[in-house]
Write a protein that binds this DNA or RNA. Structure first.
Length: 476
RNA sequence: CGGGGUGUAGCGCAGUCGGCUAGCGCGCUGCGUUUGGGACGCAGAGGUCGACGGUUCGAGUCCGCCCACCCCGACCA
């Protein structure tokens, strides 16, 4: 850990990730197995993710609320598939106030049941619909194997829960929120994702249909980065969520739920990070710009800091951090902020003050290539412009990488080679849960989601005609 | 739950065949010199060697049991 350099992604991607998360001070291991502490720098990134999503939720008509952490155990058993899916991973509270509880309480693994219960109480008429509520919350799932951000016993997320009068409206809303996630991932996080429906075997416990956004990590493994579920009337029936329609007919609601979690931080790290550390997209980075002042003597310091102050006030709308730490060399600070992934570094030294210039160093392009001097005059426009370039470049780079690692194959031999050594396989697929399970068993690759496809082809596995194309890949 | 690994200073590690005062690097504190790509000198602080039990004149070291964490597999946002 005290080695200056990280392990390279090439030689050990997993170790690279673990050390990076710790050393960049994103998170730390908690005293309880499988739990993590999200450190201030990691949480600041999460806050920016929250802000970007929350803005989009509000724009699509949602309001925020908070539902309780503890759920009566009996609630979890009301929807058949939901129980089966979640019972293995529930944390259960059996005692309270020193007494054995009459009914155990589960710590929410997700909130469909408790929110469904409340919706049943609140919804009477079609005039009450739709109900569009989101909550920012923590949830607990007792996972066997954990990894910082990607899978921990407790994690933070948002879960949206909506109730609608018609099937079509609920189905459209499921799609709308999937689009919101896609837009967020691409335009804020610069994480190119493929949005599509999950196979039946991969769908949410209790859903009619699950949709996901799938991202490709730097080791070409797939990460489910967000999900949107069409719940049909499953939960409405289990929790008695009913309304009277315009014709005075009693009907069950159609509901949806959708979530995106702190796992997304893992997606950002593994999509953009390099051997030098994190590379954070300007739109979400806790600090968009770090200024490293360079000086030797007090006279120089005074001059340099005067310029630094000018820059800070000139960049009032940006998240700027000035590294005022004494006793560290500029070189150390450069490396330190590169590890932390700050998109743009501004160096201000005596020579710059004298020449009326600033040195800009881009995080997405290391070394001399990414370093250039700009005139002090007009930096207020130049700096945001560079940030926009970085944002665009990061997306382009990640998209190129992803596209270069997706291969269309038409037979099982090629398929195995691709998912084992090359990346994702895009194939024509005739739905068959047994075959899907067999492929997963044999190759470790899972069906990520259905591609947006037109036309017809021949299933690579069965040779049957089909109009569906899917992505298979090893996943996190 | 299976397989592998690791527990010695905040972090990373060494500690030989059981031996006397438990060491190294980084970090940390103080002072000075440094500062445009991971600075240096000097002086310091910091340890129930994961826990329990055993063998022994003597245990970080040997034996037993337990615990914790990490990695790889079966499940998952």
């Amino acid at each position: 850990m005290d080695d200056k350099k990280l392990p390279s992604r090439q030689e050990n991607f997993s170790e690279w990730y673990n050390q990076l998360v710790l050393r960049a001070e994103m998170a730390d291991y908690a005293p309880v197995r499988g739990c993590m502490v999200v450190r201030p720098y990691g949480w600041a990134l999460w806050e920016n993710i929250q802000a970007a999503l929350d803005k989009r939720f509000k724009a699509t008509g949602h309001v925020n609320a908070a539902f309780p952490l503890l759920i009566p155990q009996s609630f979890m058993t009301k929807e058949k598939e939901h129980v089966e899916g979640f019972s293995p991973e529930l944390a259960v509270v059996t005692h309270g106030g020193g007494q054995l509880l009459e009914e155990p309480l589960v710590v929410r693994p997700t909130s469909e049941t408790i929110i469904g219960t409340m919706y049943a109480k609140w919804i009477q008429s079609y005039r009450d619909l739709p109900v569009l509520i989101n909550q920012w919350a923590n949830v607990v799932r007792w996972e066997m194997r954990t990894k910082l951000f990607l899978r921990t016993l407790e994690f933070y997320w948002q879960e949206g829960h909506t109730a609608h009068a018609t099937e079509q409206e609920a189905a459209e809303h499921t799609q709308r929120m999937l689009n919101v996630y896609t837009d967020f991932a691409i335009n804020e996080a610069a994480v190119p994702v493929l949005a599509g429906q999950k196979s039946d075997s991969e769908k949410f416990a209790g859903a009619k249909a699950t949709y996901s956004i799938e991202a490709m990590m730097g080791d070409t493994k797939a990460l489910q980065a967000g999900t949107s579920h069409f719940l049909g009337q499953n939960f409405a029936k289990a929790f008695d969520i009913k309304f009277l329609d315009e014709n005075n007919q009693l009907q069950y609601c159609w509901t949806t739920s959708w979530g995106l979690s702190t796992r997304f931080i893992g997606a950002i790290i593994m999509t953009h990070g390099d051997d030098q550390g994190l590379v954070l997209p300007p739109n979400l980075a806790p600090y968009q710009v770090v200024i490293v002042p360079i000086y030797r003597k007090d006279e120089e310091k005074a001059l340099v800091m005067e310029t630094v102050d000018k820059i800070v006030s000139g960049l009032g709308n940006l998240r700027v951090f000035v590294d005022r730490r004494e006793g560290l060399t500029p070189g150390f600070k450069f490396n330190d902020w590169e590890l932390k992934g700050v998109p743009l570094r501004i160096e201000v030294g005596p020579k710059d003050v004298q020449n009326g210039t600033l040195a800009l160093a881009r995080r997405d392009i290391l070394g001399k290539e990414g370093k250039r001097f700009i005139p002090m005059a007009g930096f207020e426009q130049a700096v945001p412009a560079v940030l926009a370039e970085i944002q665009a470049n990061m997306l382009a780079k990640a998209t190129k990488f992803r596209d270069e690692h997706i291969f269309e194959v038409s037979n099982y031999e090629d398929f195995k080679d691709v998912v084992e050594n090359k990346g994702w396989a895009k194939v024509w697929w005739y739905d068959d849960a047994a075959n899907e399970a067999k492929i997963k068993e044999e190759t470790k690759a899972s069906l990520r989601n259905y591609a947006q496809t037109e036309g017809e082809g021949v299933c690579f596995y069965t040779g049957k005609k089909t109009n569906k194309q899917v992505y298979f890949a090893k996943g996190y």
